[in-house]
Design a protein around this nucleic acid. Sequence first.
DNA 1: ACCGAAAAGCGGACTCGGTACAAGTTCTTA
DNA 2: TAAGAACTTGTACCGAGTCCGCTTTTCGGT
Lengths: 201, 201
Amino acid sequence: MAHCPVSAVMGLRERKKLAAWRTIRSTALRLIDERGFDAVSVEDIAAEAGVSRTTFFSYFASKEAVVFDLDPDEVRQWRELLENCRTDTPLWDALTDLALGLARLLSERLPLQKRLLEQSPGLCRSTRGVCDGIEPELREWLGRRCPDGDDVRTALVLNTAMAAVTTAIDAWDPHQPYDRLLELLSDCLRWAGAGLAHPVS
Amino acid sequence: MAHCPVSAVMGLRERKKLAAWRTIRSTALRLIDERGFDAVSVEDIAAEAGVSRTTFFSYFASKEAVVFDLDPDEVRQWRELLENCRTDTPLWDALTDLALGLARLLSERLPLQKRLLEQSPGLCRSTRGVCDGIEPELREWLGRRCPDGDDVRTALVLNTAMAAVTTAIDAWDPHQPYDRLLELLSDCLRWAGAGLAHPVS
DNA sequence: ACCGAAAAGCGGACTCGGTACAAGTTCTTA
DNA sequence: TAAGAACTTGTACCGAGTCCGCTTTTCGGT
């Protein structure tokens, strides 16, 4: 089997699993886009995707997760981004680069997610946001990078960076060009980095 | 009836309502403290408080709300804090004062809430946090104070301040003295105000 | 003191998200 | 090819949250 690259890397099982994941997700996004988050039940999604409700929950931990979870490919790329991150640049610059890199990575999915958020009140009230999925790994990365730093300060840096990213995504209108989002991200991170107590620079 | 101060201000109806609110809330906090958030159902709370499940939901919009909602008295004091806020001090200083004032206001309830959060995984995953209840009014206050400011920057200031407060509350151990929390709040707001890109000052 | 209106409380039925489990099916691997 | 792991499925169950029709309590005017 060594001559067949795909099945050498991924067995049939894994390939089917990924396919099912993507079928469920795309089905869900389509239905939610059509009817709104609250008007689509997990049953509907499962039925339309040709799986059982049980199976849906074996792929996604919650109904919101099907909107916000990252594709395994995206997770892989995000991990690469984290690993290839230079360690000699100042921390805040590194975080800014990561945020912009992530935004480029998600350029396909983010506009849709933004649209769904806007037209689904139930989704806004949800625990999760567009970029919450990456937080645990980012937190771990930060801990590795600042092993002997003040824990409170490290947590503050992370939470503030997340707040800046959230603010930028919030402020962005999905009808605007994607570059506008990158601009907002860059602005928000620069402002937060420079200090909100100072006047605009 | 004008000679009776209490019933002049609040009719029997209102007084009963407030009493019921406080009964439900204190019952809920006691049960949750004893058994943990996830092991107490709304039924349990309602039964123990001597009301029906329906009535519970007429007082609190969700199960989490019974933990996080502010007492009407606290809301009143918080509004006074907002109104009496000086308009000549720099914005970030005003926000810092508000945060510290709020923390003093909630000194009774916050340690308990923090304890409940620590021992109830279901509560952590919740949409709401300890200080989310005040956000809408704070946002409105901020809009009134900066009517002609850049919307994105204003949103960033608010979100960052909230992140700083959340970080401080997170970092605080309820077994520590309450002054330690005020210290953490002050530190986090100072750091965020000075800019996370700068070294510690 | 009484009456009609408004507000609050109640029980019950319902929807839906999420979990547990036991059985069946499909892939892997030795 | 057979044992066994991984995946799917139906069913039953729990609890949060909503809706509705009904009764009880409070309020304002007479």
